[in-house]
Structures are given as C-alpha cells and as structure tokens.
Design a protein around this nucleic acid. Structure first.
Lengths: 335, 335
DNA sequence: TATCATTATGTTAACGTTAACATATGGAGG
DNA sequence: CCTCCATATGTTAACGTTAACATAATGATA
C-alpha cells in the first residue's frame, strides 16, 4: 500500500542503505549474493526512487519548463509535442505553461519554474516577454532557449524561423507561375513576431519588379477562419482576372477557401493560394500548398541547445536558423 | 547570481530561519519591524522558495501527471489545455506524457510519475492501459481520474462522454430532415474507444425504422483526411439521390469535403454531413455541423474529481457523464 | 610477515524547508 | 508578587537520497 523507500529495501535485505544504493546505481562493490537478493526485492516491491529527494540532494529536477502562448495556431502544438518527446528520450519531463501574453502571469510563471527547480527553460513565440524575466532565470542558473525570437541576451541561445525567406519563397513561387496580382493576408507587421513574413512578401514583389498595391493587402487582428474570409472578400471582391493570395497562416487560408466556396470560385482555377505553417493545409478542400515549419526539427533543436548549455553553462551563444519549405499541393495556377 | 535560500535571508535580516519562515507563510508571531525588514529583503533578493525541498518535507509535489495518447485528433489537445489551465488556477503544474499505446512506455511512465511524486494522475483516452498500472498508482497513494473510459477500479473516478447519445443525435438530426440514406465513416467498433458512436448510429436508424445498409458503412483504420476521402468515395460513388454522411471525427469529414470538392458536389445541396468533435469543423469549406465535445468542461471536471479525491482518498467513486451537443452549421439539407 | 590493493559493507552529513518544540519577555489579573 | 497568557524568537529533527568517508576482511606481492 505504501511507498517503499531505500531504508525499507535495506531492512528487508538485511543490508545497509548504502548497499541498496550501490545496486540501484550500479556502482561500487556489491557481493553477487547481495546484489541478487536486493534486485529481487526491488522487483517484488516495485520500488521507485523518489526524484524529489534525489533532486534535492543533487539539485536537479529532471524537469524542463516550456513557456508558450495560448493560441489557436496548431503550429505551437507541434513544437510543444516535439519538445516533450525529445526531452523524454533523455529522461526529462516537460512542464508547459501557457500565458495570454500578460506579463503578470509570466512573472508568476518564472517564479514557479525557479521554485520547481527546473533544469532548463524553453520559451516559444512570445514577442513581448520581459528581458528581466529571462535574466532572472539565467541568474538562477537556469539555461534558457528562445524559439522564434532572436533577442540578444547573454548566455541565451535561440532558434529562429526564417520567415522572410518563407514568405519570399511562397510569393516567388506565385510570380514564377506568372502571377502579377498577389494578395497578402496577415497580422499587421508592427504587432507580430512574424512581421518578417510581410517583409518577405514585399521583398519578392520588389525583386521581380511588381508594384505593390494596397488593395491587395489585408491586415487581420488575429488568426482565425473568419478573419481570413473577410480578407478574401476585401481583396477579391473588386478584382478582375486571376488572383493569387498568400496568407501567413493556414487558418487564414481556410477562410479564403470558405469565401471561394461561397462565391463558387475554384482553387486554383480562379484563385491561387499558398498558406503558411502547413498545419491544416492538407485537410482543406482542396488541400492547399503551404510553407511548412518543421516543428519536429524546431523542438529537437531547442532541446539540443538546452542540453548543450546545461552541460556547459558558459558555452558561446548559438543561434540556429530554421528554413521553412514549400509543400506543394498545386494550388497555384500556371498562367 | 546564485539562488537565495531561507538561511541567506535569515542571515541578512539577522534573525533565525524560523522567523523568515513565519513571514513567508504568514503565520505565527513576528514583530512588525522584523516583518517589514524581512519582506524588504525577500523583495530585493527575489527569493523563491524551493519546491523540491518543501515537497520533500510535506510530501507533495504540486505536480499532476497527465497520461494521454499521441494523436492527430485535436480533441485531446483541447482537453489537455483545459486540464493545464484548470490545474494552474490552484497552483498545480501538469506533466503531460504521451504514449503510442505501447504498454512498455506506459509502464515506464507510471514509474516516472510515482518517482516524480505527482499528487494525482489524469488518464485520457487510453483504451488499452493495463489495470495493473492504475493499481500501482493508487497503491502508491496517488489519486487517478480516467477520462473517456469507465473502468471500474476501486477509488478511481471517471469521466465518460456519452458517445452513443452524440451519434444518435447527429443521425436523428439527419433523419428528421427527411434523410433515409445515411452513411457512416468511422473506426471499426471493435478496436475503438468510441465504439458507441457506431452503436448510436445504428440505434438512431433502428429507432426510426430505417433498414441499415452495408454500402453506407465505411470503416477506417485511423483518423485522417485521406481515410475520409476514401470513405466518401466508396459510399457515394454508386449512390443515386441525396445522401447524408455521419463521420466520427471532423478530420474524416474533411476528407469527405475534399471528395465532394473534387466531384463538384455541393454541401449540403448534394451531400449532407455532420462531423464529430467540433475541432476543425468551423475551418472547413463550408463550415460543417459537428457534435461538440466540451473539452473545457471535461478538463475542468477531471481536475475537480482529482482534487476531490486528493482531499478525501476514501471518497466514493464518482462517474461523470458529459453530453456532446450539436453545433449546427446547416450542412444537412431539408428534404 | 608486513604492506597494499581489492572487494565489501556501513555511517553519516549534507540538500532546503517545515513545524513541533523550546525559550524568553512582557504585561494583565488575582 | 506570583501566575498565566499573548507575543516574539530560536533550535532542531525530520523528509529520502546521495556520496564522501570510514572500516574491515581477503588475498597477493615484496
């Protein structure tokens, strides 16, 4: 009924607690008889070492904190999942804390993570987080890795997604297919982490000498199907001829498709489209091309960077850049 | 740079560690001067209590384990998120462990949770988990709540979703709209937790005296858009006249919509449809009706049951039944 | 035979917090 | 003036594990 501790095992085997420890950790000298006897008891009792006690002694918790934002965007769930699985391969657990971008919650969370004695922290996609909080973590000796935000804080490693490149490639793809009228639906650059997606869009137009047109651009407040639909309406309604639309998220693209469905427009025959993040792209009708962010890779890299710094706290800062790539489902018409 | 401990604070304030403890816990007697002085130091140093140490002493970790399965099904993410947020309101953190339904991983995870000294465990949607493992948890004094699986294990509370009702209502909705030909796309009842969704489908047909037809039924191996599309093809291809299709997941429905899009069939004009879980339903073109599982409510109930048992380990077992409800987006044609 | 490594085992002081148990100084009530 | 209680503070033994530091017996080497 109760939980066995080393003392109990030691008593049962008629040895000292130290000998039990030697068997559990497979170090030091133990006679073959005692070893066998203790292992048998360990088996029978289903003894599980108390990580809290050992954590206190060794000052490590085998816990990794993951601070992220609450969002409809499935992309972060992929990353989150990759982090969890990657960490568990090395015997670490992940504590995921979500905020709604309010700094009071974040302050509390940082204290909780320190209190919980986590061995490291990964912060994904919070553009607003106070650098003081990060410093508090590093001051407490906790390594920090930041995903999708390259801020230069000493001893903090980072992973950035090359969103400029992603948007640039998506739009270039459209231009190379002969498109001239290319719409943009996304969050206003000033308020988004992913502002470079808008820059990439403009960059591609500029590169190929296409004059930008304000009628083609629709800013949204957040990522939702409804916002995408509104955007499609505002861009398409007065437009004649073929049109290609780049959205900074698949969710926005889903709204574009709803608008097209309603209006009887076909994709890509009437409207070409490329989404971003490649989350629900394959589930839409039709499945759409999308810039994929390798969530798996991002999560694994985050863990790699974190473990690297955990083993060498004074390592030189490393910034990893992840490149999105086009998953082509042929939703851009060749003109 | 380093982390302050109570001893450091005590030294700075020139008092004993006990007095510092009294200020932190706001109990016992402390003179107003000392209280002010200590509070100031606490502020300045940014002292954070070490939960590992206090956890060892009080034998509690403020950690809740959440065992779940890795799945494409967004439904579990909703539940997971609700659990995390609900727990954090009471100062608890959640450790999420995902398995791929293999018992070896699960055995390891149970040991990890015991080792981590979690204060409670929530298990979502694992039809195959070994009752022995659950017993190991309860034997270790850890309360367990099971979601979507009502197995009778002493001292284990449960939350079940009334999937029979959900399917029954979806199909009844179709019948009441005049449909006779009603297709089913879902996992073979034998291998699924949600087998009652198939029963509900059959139940509704029986209730209204509609003869079931094997041509209307398509079993899938798992939840994916592709499987849904294949299902739609096999059900619709030889069918004349109006058809309604019930899928046991929105992801499957997304495949049906892709098939329709390809064939130029309109929803609901040509094909009526109702999905299940109401996850991506609103993002599809057109947005479809779906049976919603209140993930928020499920997560909150799970935490409530868990806390209840944590405070009274010998409470009588409670089984909560959650009812899905139709979110009607008018994708069933009135005949 | 003295010396020394090897093998085998035990004892104990941390780790940081908690809380029960002292101890001590007032003043109020008899 | 003694007793009692409220106030204020300090000391210390846990919690379960780890690992450094004994201790001791065996057999091999010089």
């Amino acid at each position: 009924m109760a939980n066995y501790k080393m003392k109990d095992i030691a008593d049962m085997a008629g040895v000292s607690i130290a000998t039990v420890g030697r068997v559990i950790h497979q170090n030091g000298y133990v006679s073959t008889e005692n070893k066998a006897k203790i292992e048998k008891i360990l088996q029978e009792t289903g003894y599980v070492p108390n990580k809290i006690a050992s954590g206190l002694k060794k000052s490590e918790s085998k816990l990794i904190g993951h601070m992220t934002v609450f969002s409809d965007n499935m992309q972060y769930e992929m990353i989150s999942d990759a982090i969890t699985r990657s960490a568990s391969k090395s015997g670490y657990h992940v504590l995921t804390l979500t905020s709604h971008l309010d700094s009071e919650t974040e302050r509390r969370q940082v204290d909780q993570l320190i209190g919980q004695q986590v061995d490291g922290v990964i912060i994904t996609s919070n553009p607003a987080i106070d650098a003081k909080l990060i410093t508090k973590l590093t001051n407490a000796g906790i390594p920090v890795v930041m995903v999708e935000r390259t801020q230069d804080i000493p001893k903090v490693d980072g992973i950035a997604v090359d969103d400029y490149l992603g948007a640039y490639e998506a739009v270039s793809h459209m231009i190379k297919h002969g498109h001239k009228a290319i719409g943009f639906i996304g969050i206003k650059p000033e308020q988004a982490v992913e502002s470079s997606r808008f820059e990439g869009y403009k960059g591609a137009l500029a590169k190929y000498g296409i004059e930008p047109n304000d009628d083609w651009i629709h800013y949204v407040e957040g990522y939702s199907t409804g916002e995408g639909k509104t955007g499609a309406y505002s861009i398409i309604k007065n437009h004649k001829g073929p049109m290609a639309i780049f959205t900074t998220s698949d969710v926005l693209a889903s709204g574009v498709l709803q608008y097209c469905y309603q209006q009887g427009l076909r994709v890509p025959d009437d409207i070409s489209i490329i989404g971003y993040d490649n989350t629900i792209a394959k589930m839409l009708a039709p499945p759409i091309s999308s810039m994929a962010l390798p969530g798996q890779e991002i999560g694994e890299e985050a863990i790699r960077l974190l473990f690297r710094r955990m083993s060498d706290k004074s390592a030189i800062e490393e910034k990893v850049v992840i490149k999105p790539y086009l998953v082509d489902r042929e939703t851009v018409l060749f003109l």
